[in-house]
Design a protein around this nucleic acid. Structure first.
Length: 1018
RNA sequence: GGGCGGAUGGCGAAACUGGCAGACGCGCUGGACUCAAAAUCCAGUGAUGGCAACAUCGUGAGGGUUCGACCCCCUCUCCGCCCACCA
């Protein structure tokens, strides 16, 4: 008898033992295969360990412990991502040095983490703020600088006018400063940048080589935002299209001949280059738009002045310069908030006096500046195709610009699809929609030899215009002669179908025309037509509800309602010169190729991903190790001078009034000599963002104390890549991408041994406060793990956090379930009173284990032991599989089921209890160690072998068959597993419970699923 | 607006490939032990009807496919997270 379960005593005892004996150390020289488990190292905030840290750390702890037991040399390290804003803000408030704040916080975190019993290798603890660590962060920066990946550029940054400080994107929440809540502005400032975009394609493509959750891959791909497209050069003409009127509306356009613009061009560079992914819509371009940041209207904007400087020459060309300048000023004043709050109403101003020449057809189109075009994506200019782009459509509607449809939607009539082996005829057709203004009904035809209801349909004869053709058809088919043409409903729609009456496949390019009946005048219809169909007037509702023989119906109805916008999908080209008739994808290829051949364009790949703004105007970050020399410009510090440490500071940690880092105030530190020429120089005062230290920390764990290299190459080779990295979804697009980028760079310069740092990436769900809201200090709903550990014990907390719900989904904390987890462990504790020395017969035979004293064996006891062993081995399988799939909740529940069964049967063999303790140990390591010791084992259960299920226990000679009648369960029976289908049928039909449902009738059908069920259909 | 995920008892949730819906835990009800309480143990616990055996209904709403649907398809509602004019 071992007394009560007392977690306080045993948890402290085992934590001390583990540490003393180095049970969880990874061994660089181990013969075993390595396994590298990684969690995101915590930011040591003043609030202490979050309950959510415990959930994700426990999950990886379970994996790490299982791997260790499976014979791997496991690296499961821990450290501190300690540079960052909250610490600095706390320092600003209290005047305590951030280093000291960090020390206190990490001490607290370390104590808390150790108290949960995580199997971290504490000998490898790292801290990003340790000069011995950030020496290498700075070193990596210098390597990037050498390779041209680090550069300075003027960037629009988020500026808080109240705090007078530049903010990172993540510090701006809904357009407001995270700290003071004031609205932020955009301001231009020189910043250090890292050229992550040079790695965009590899970061994108190499996702195929790693095992990340699909949603993580999708999010990264979307963030990188690769799109293949074409740049097109639109030469600028100063003249208002001398030879032709302004660009034409659909229906009345004349054929375009390429126009010679040589004499009008001033320089070779005088063109607007646009980027498009839809080169197939080039003929539909009716204007060109440049972003407010585009060089055509803006050369530079400095943060010291509101002046917009554009060359005189350019101003002179733009006739309405005053108006344009006003718009640019307006745009600049708008905050992010305004831009989105307006419901994204599009605004813009035409650049009078400028026309852009569409290189594909020589057509001159007007040029606009509008802020719906982004200055920093693509080329900062777009060709606007309102018919095929929602944004251009909205802008065109607002400013009354022409919409020219050049891509026909392409439909296949599902009711009459084209047939193989028939000839195909393509022609232009019309649908005439004739409305009777008196009742709003439409004129339709009901066909006599086919089950069709159609509008008035017909072909367009050579030389005929569509309106004429439609009026002719209406007259011929219905006799109505007085029609008023209202409008053409959008552009043509192409449909493919089989025309049964002509036995041929048709491709119809159909225009829909709306008419109104002027009066009822109706001529007699010729016999031939009258024999084919009769007329019918249908309301819109009737048309919707009736099966109309009209593949295009949805388009026509939407256009009638005026709900029609841009058609943005692919289709078939029309009114596009030599490219008409091609599919969108063919046309993109051919048009791009032609542009490229003529020197008017180029196929390119663009990314949404931007270069990484790497500067922060802060104290608590890694100093950027360069100096600015009057003679030599930007000069890198020699590597021998690393680490460049932060200076001690007297006058507070706040940034300066000009937005410079507080480092700028320390003359003795800033003023230095140039490493190259020895002349006077100033140190860079920007520091790195806190993403820097976390971009390579997984490498440092491998060799954390190395003073002469980032890590020993041999050791890196042994441990990389990380085999399993679990973290939060919120880090998918920043940290995960940044660290993949740094690792790839280090791989390229021969430092990192693998191109990808992480082999497998999974993610956890957040733990929310009760009520499903975020835990926050201000709401006072933060759960302190210390309280739970002291009230219930660390093992209970671990079990509960794994049991409470699916690991990958967010879950609200509820205190109520904790007691259940504690009870479970109490029951496990009491099992040591129920041990028997008997092993079941099967175990001894099958796995060759020694039988202990068997004098007390009785048949009954043996049966009980066997029942338990059979369930135990099923549990081993379940727990093993569930851990790999991160289904920790069902793993715990299956162990609960086992414990319930042991209690019910009243006994378990000592050997089997040992197996159970092994699978329990990753979840509740302290109690498992204590019981393992109590039943007479020496050594740690954490290093015992992970049990393998004995297959002999898993197979059963009988199966339970469910009997359904019409899909509803009515009975079940046990039957030998090898029973035939006929046996099952007979048995099922024989059931007394089933018979009443059959009511003496013969079953219509009987479905037998071997090993599972019989379903009788009556 | 787009992407991803979710909705099942009083509550957290199971149901792995379309085959017994609600495992496991909490809570609740009744009982045992106790002078009493706590703890523990035993039994019950989706809803409705019935003394009961049992029957009917039931996985956000509505349709569909299927012998059979929490699961697949279509439409919709609500919730969460991420992105948000990316041409």
């Amino acid at each position: 008898m071992q007394g009560r379960y007392d977690p306080k005593t045993i948890e402290g005892k085992w934590q001390a033992k583990w540490e003393e004996q180095g049970v969880f150390s990874a061994h660089d020289d181990s013969e075993k295969p390595k396994y590298y488990c990684l969690i995101e190292f915590p930011y040591p905030s003043g609030q202490g360990l979050h309950i959510g840290h415990i959930r994700s750390n426990t999950a990886m702890d379970i994996v790490a412990r299982k791997r260790r037991m499976e014979g791997f040399d496991v690296l499961y390290p821990i450290g501190w991502d300690a540079f960052g804003l909250p610490t600095e803000n706390y320092a600003i408030k209290t005047g305590i040095h951030p280093r000291e704040v960090t020390r206190q916080n990490t001490d607290n975190f370390r104590r808390q983490l150790k108290g949960i019993g995580f199997s971290f290798d504490w000998s490898r603890e790292i801290n990003t703020t340790d000069p011995a660590y950030f020496k290498w962060t700075q070193w990596i920066f210098l390597q990037m600088l050498k390779k041209g990946l680090a550069y300075k550029a003027k960037m629009m940054i988020n500026w808080c006018p109240s705090c007078k400080i530049g903010l990172a994107n993540e510090e701006v929440v809904d357009g407001k400063c995270e700290r003071c809540g004031n609205e932020t502005e955009k301001r231009e400032k020189e910043q250090w940048m890292l050229a992550i975009t040079k790695y965009a394609d590899r970061l994108h493509d190499d996702l195929d080589t790693v095992d990340y959750l699909e949603k993580i891959k999708i999010q990264q791909r979307n963030w990188i935002g690769r799109s293949e497209g074409t740049t097109v050069k639109f030469p600028i003409s100063n003249f208002q299209s001398p030879n032709k009127s302004e660009i034409t509306n659909p229906g009345s356009q004349s054929p375009n001949e390429p126009q010679n613009t040589d004499s009008k061009r001033q320089t070779e560079e005088d063109f607007i280059e646009v980027f498009t992914t839809r080169a197939d819509t080039l003929y539909g371009c009716t204007y060109v738009v440049v972003a407010p940041e585009h060089p055509l209207v803006r050369e530079q904007l400095t943060d010291s002045s509101e002046q917009i400087t554009v060359s005189k020459e350019q101003k002179a060309r733009i006739k309405n310069w005053e108006e344009v300048a006003a718009y640019l000023k307006e745009t600049k004043k708008k905050t992010e908030m305004d831009r989105t709050a307006e419901g994204r109403e599009k605004t813009g101003v035409r650049l009078d006096g400028l026309m852009a020449i569409n290189p594909i057809n020589g057509e001159a189109v007007p040029v606009f500046v509008a802020d719906y075009v982004l200055g920093d994506y693509g080329t900062g200019a777009v060709m606007a195709v309102p018919a095929h782009d929602e944004r251009d459509y909205a802008f065109a509607k607002k400013y009354d610009l022409p919409v020219r449809m050049v891509v026909m939607p392409h439909l296949t009539d599902k009711k009459n699809p084209p047939r193989e082996g028939k000839k195909t005829v393509e022609r232009d057709t019309i649908h005439a929609l004739v409305r009777n203004p008196k009742d709003g009904k439409f004129l339709c035809l009901e066909w006599k030899n086919h089950p069709w209801t159609t509008f008035i349909v017909g072909g367009v004869e050579n030389g005929e215009d569509v309106v004429g053709a439609a009026m002719r058809e209406v007259f011929e088919e219905t006799g109505y002669s007085n029609l008023k043409y209202i409008e053409t409903l959008g552009g043509k729609v192409q449909s493919e179908y089989f025309a049964a009456h002509k036995d041929e496949n048709r491709i119809a390019n159909t225009s829909a025309l709306l008419f109104e009946l002027e009066d009822d005048t109706r001529e007699r219809v010729v016999e031939e037509e009258a024999a084919k169909h009769s007329i019918l007037w249908l309301s819109l509702d009737e048309i919707r509800n009736r099966e109309m023989t009209c593949a295009e119906l949805d388009f026509w109805l939407a256009r009638l309602d005026g709900k029609d916008g841009a058609f943005v999908d692919d289709g078939t080209l029309t009114d596009s010169g030599e490219f008409s008739g091609l599919s969108s994808s063919q046309a993109r290829e051919k048009i791009s190729t032609k542009l490229e051949a003529d020197g008017n364009g180029k196929k390119v790949v663009k990314y949404k991903l931007r270069d990484w703004v790497f500067s922060r105007q802060r104290y608590w970050g890694e100093p950027i190790p360069v100096v600015h020399c009057e003679q030599c410009g930007i000069v890198a510090l020699p590597e021998s001078e690393l680490p460049l440490e932060l200076p001690e500071i007297d006058g507070g940690y706040s940034p300066t009034d000009t937005g410079e880092s507080p480092l700028a105030k320390i003359g003795s530190w800033v003023n230095t000599t140039c490493p190259t020429c020895g002349g006077p120089a100033k140190r860079e005062t920007d520091t790195m963002p806190n993403w820097a230290g976390s971009s390579w920390y997984f490498l440092r764990y491998i060799d954390p104390k190395n003073g002469s290299a980032l890590a020993d190459p041999e050791k890196l080779k042994r441990y990389m890549p990380v085999d399993w990295y679990n973290g939060g979804m919120e880090h998918t697009t920043l940290h995960l991408l940044y660290s993949r980028f740094w690792n790839k760079f280090l791989f390229d310069i021969g430092v990192a041994p693998t191109s990808e740092p992480y082999q497998k990436r999974t993610s956890h769900g957040l733990i929310l406060a009760e009520g499903g809201v975020k835990m926050s200090k201000s709401k006072g709903n933060v759960i302190n793990p210390d309280d739970i550990v002291s009230d219930f014990g660390a093992d209970t907390l671990r079990i509960y956090e794994m049991f409470m719900g699916p690991f990958d989904q967010p879950i609200a904390w509820g205190q109520n379930g904790l007691v259940g987890s504690r009870r479970f462990l109490e029951r496990v504790w009491k099992l040591q009173e129920k041990l028997t020395t008997h092993n079941s017969q099967l175990t001894t035979e099958e796995s060759g284990l020694t039988t202990e004293n068997s004098q007390l064996t009785t048949g009954e006891q043996e049966q009980k032991v066997k029942t338990i062993d059979s369930l135990l081995h099923k549990t081993i399988v379940k727990v093993s599989e569930d851990i790999e799939a991160m289904r920790f909740n069902t793993a715990v529940s299956s162990m609960m089921i086992l414990v319930n069964a042991i209690e019910r049967e009243g006994t378990i063999s000592k050997h089997s209890f040992g197996l159970f303790l092994r699978i329990l140990s990753p979840f509740a390591p302290h109690i498992a160690e204590e019981l393992w010791e109590n039943i007479g084992n020496t050594g740690s259960v954490s290093l015992a072998a992970w049990p393998e299920a004995d297959l002999a226990y898993l197979v059963s000679d009988t199966v339970k068959i469910v009997v359904q009648v019409n899909g509803k369960m009515r009975d079940s029976f046990e039957i030998p597993a090898d029973a035939s289908e006929d046996d099952l049928k007979t048995h099922a039909l024989d059931s007394d419970k089933v018979k009443p449902y059959l009511d003496g009738k013969e079953p219509k059908r009987i479905i037998v699923v071997p090993g599972k069920l019989v379903n009788i259909v009556v």
